[in-house]
Design a protein around this nucleic acid. Structure first.
Lengths: 353, 353
DNA sequence: CTGAAAGCGCTTACAG
DNA sequence: CTGAAAGCGCTTACAG
């Protein structure tokens, strides 16, 4: 009564061996209620003996779920994606799901068709979008049309209709700025990211808010528009450091640009942080691979990805009586990493706030 | 005769609309020979009109292929994985395949069971393994037992029985060393990677070979054992730079360690490359995000991944009469990137070789 | 608490 | 060059 040699056991083999119907085996495997405890134990025993593993394609074809979660990403945010992917695959594994990744080009003219083809073939139970794809209207429309649930990671706009996971970029940028101010810095330069990235504006907002709340003016001469790349950080540094009165600190909207500032400063013979404090944002791998290591903000990528997967595989149910409705827009705590690229201005020490 | 509103069209809808049997539709879609050109055109037209997309789960269940390629990776090699993943997903898309990724911990006690579960559920048509998983005996055995074809990327050992893709690490390390020697350096230090990583030994071999072939001795005092991490590069630098006669150049077995040397040198007040030349290996993202940018070796990750996918979806057929058998162990060309972290020794200029 | 039947949407032999 | 039938291995209603 055992499986034919050579081919993997099927649910029929398990049912026969356990002396039950395949429906009962299915119930046990899917943790459906209403199976006698003894029956359940017996089925589980046979499953273990036979090393039976339900075939995803059969489950997917017959049922309403595919046990597949899709992850769409666009290369530039590679460091961002690494953490996301780790958290997502681990969380998927815990629930018998699998992660299918797809690398897209944000500017591809047929990007919607690429997405449409992917979901039509795979029928994933959900999709995770990372920036800048999570702000791409054509991608979002293709997903909406195909009725695929998705969670956006750090999207530009948050709406009740669209589940998302993010950190509070404004608050985090405010904290970085407060740190610099508390170190005695007043002429603080800011390097913005590109306008088409959601984080750019939010981080600038946080910078501005902190400056104003400390009665410090935001000098337009000390705000430079970069594009989140290393070379644009180098250029920004050359511009900002040639001002009549030089800034004593530079806060770059992301680490790559901060690294550009660091490289430029070192090339110009400036000591960091003695002559210039530098802060970034993201805690990219390189941030701790330079000297001095960069003061920056860490986003909990893994945890954010886990949260995203959870929202997809266990869609929020009707909240219990009186319980608060589960939020579809989650904000996870970030972490301010104070490292050696920032220090007190001219030995003035920590200023009272 | 059109598909029921709301649900996606099936092969039956296409067949009805085109006035042929589903078998003929299947033939056209799978590019099987022996379909009248007019029939083919008609089917294709209806497919386009209906936006019909075959469902992967149905094809997979009925047929011998799953159209899924698995990518197994272990975090530390994150930078390596990014390129691999991009190449793999793009190549997969060209052939209607999809990439399922799984993040594993190389030391997990149940790693073989994790792999076994994954392949049993997914039945991928092939698997790509990156270091160090491609050298993990338990992973390889689990895959062999399940009869899943796999391609190893840069494995420690190459065998005719096991398809692989890699670069010539020995030759590349030799070239880096030759570069340093041609710049006039003679006291060249080398930082090895950990013994359990295949690349460590090969890169050291290349270093040694180049030194010996130029009549230069490999001074045991100038060889340090690191572990491919940034801190181990820092430590190596402190050790190597405190030797009675200091090295004028350091060749680190990978970029992370080279970055550690760079950071340590800068902290010690040494000018790079004027006082010390530094070379790495891998062209990690950070290698060009520091000042000076690192001289290093680029592995063509994307191309390697594309090659791996190809070996998996189009298994080598019987070679044509007289044609050379397609190699299952491909070696792709690397690229020596000479950047600013290396320069001629004390202005001695390029020495004739 | 349990099961017999139908069906998901394709491909595989097989036949003509 | 084309098609009718069976079947892949599960889940879904439905019935008891």
């Amino acid at each position: 009564m055992s499986a034919k040699a050579g081919s993997a056991p099927t649910i029929i083999d398990v049912a026969a061996q356990a002396g039950v119907s395949i429906k009962t085996v299915s119930r046990v495997l899917n943790q459906e209620p209403g199976v006698h405890e003894q029956t359940r134990a017996q089925v589980l025993k046979v499953v273990a003996e036979l090393k039976y593993r339900p075939k995803l394609s059969a489950r997917s074809l017959a049922g309403a779920r595919s046990f597949l979660i899709g992850l769409l990403y666009y290369d530039p945010s590679a460091a961002f994606v690494a953490g996301v992917q780790k958290g997502a695959t681990l969380r998927c594994r815990e629930s018998g799901y699998h992660l299918v990744v797809e690398s897209l080009h944000n500017d591809a003219p047929d990007i919607d068709s690429q997405v449409e083809r992917m979901v039509a073939a795979l029928r994933p139970d959900g999709m995770i979008l990372t920036p800048p794809l999570c702000d791409n209207a054509r991608v979002l429309k293709a997903l909406l049309d195909s009725n695929t649930p998705c969670v956006l990671m750090s999207p530009r706009e948050v709406s009740a209709a669209q589940p998302s996971v993010r950190i509070d970029d404004v608050r985090a940028a405010e904290e970085v700025t407060n740190l610099l101010i508390s170190l005695g810095h007043q002429r603080i330069a800011f390097i913005k990211g590109p306008d088409d990235q959601a984080a750019s504006g939010m981080r600038y907002q946080g910078f501005e808010r902190a400056m104003l709340s400390h009665g410090l003016a935001v000098d337009a001469e000390l705000v430079w528009g970069g594009d989140f790349t290393f070379p644009s950080g180098v250029e920004a540094a050359h511009q900002l450091l040639s001002r009549r009165v030089r800034p004593t600190a530079v806060f770059a909207g992301n680490d790559d640009m901060a690294l550009g500032v660091l490289a430029a400063a070192q090339r110009l013979g400036l000591a960091v942080p003695a002559d210039l404090s530098i802060a970034g944002f993201d805690d990219s791998p390189a941030a701790s691979l330079v000297w001095p290591p960069l003061t920056t903000v860490r986003q909990p990528m893994e945890e954010m990805a886990r949260a995203a997967v959870e929202m997809l595989i266990a869609p929020p149910r009707e909240p219990a009586e009186g319980a608060p409705p589960p939020s579809v827009n989650r904000v996870l705590p970030h972490e301010l990493l104070v490292r050696n690229s920032t220090s007190a201005l001219h030995g003035k020490g920590k200023r009272k706030t």
